[in-house]
């Protein structure tokens, strides 16, 4: 897949957690949406920079990853409930996987996500770590 273009297109969202907020109902979305599913055509979405702090809503420790993520297994993935409103799927890093639990407070960090083969581009973006 041409991650060069696909990754570049998402740089604001992946580097800086730019989501959408509906001015009509106040709901926050990540990733960005064009239409607010609640308000439909009455809704009005504008970009919002999410603060990147929240709590672990649920998580799993992956022992059997795809090839791309083999070198980091076992690793923790989670759905984080952001303080700003939206839920987000992410890796939890800088931790002992066994210590992670639901409700842990986490914050966003900027990290390398994956490589497109040996000669391809390196994708960067958000991961989260447990707040000290």
């Amino acid at each position: 897949m041409k991650d060069t273009v696909r990754g570049w297109r998402h740089i604001p969202q992946r580097y800086n957690l730019i989501g959408s907020k509906c001015l009509e109902c106040g709901k926050v979305f990540f990733p960005k949406r064009i239409i607010c599913p609640e308000c439909r055509r009455k809704g009005q979405l504008e970009d919002i920079k999410l603060r990147g702090e929240g709590k672990i809503y649920t998580y799993s420790i992956i022992n059997t990853p795809t090839d791309e993520f083999k070198t980091i297994a076992p690793y923790v993935v989670a759905i984080v409930e952001l303080d700003d409103g939206a839920k987000i799927t992410t890796q939890i890093v800088d931790c002992n996987p066994e210590d992670v639990k639901i409700g842990d407070e986490v914050e966003m960090v900027f990290r390398k996500i994956r490589e497109e083969g040996d000669d391809g581009v390196i994708s960067y973006g958000f991961k989260f770590r447990i707040k000290k």
Partner: peptide
């Protein structure tokens, strides 16, 4: 693309 596998979604 975040590294989530299909089984891990159901695990969550």
């Amino acid at each position: 693309q975040q590294g989530v596998t299909f089984p891990s979604l159901y695990a969550m």
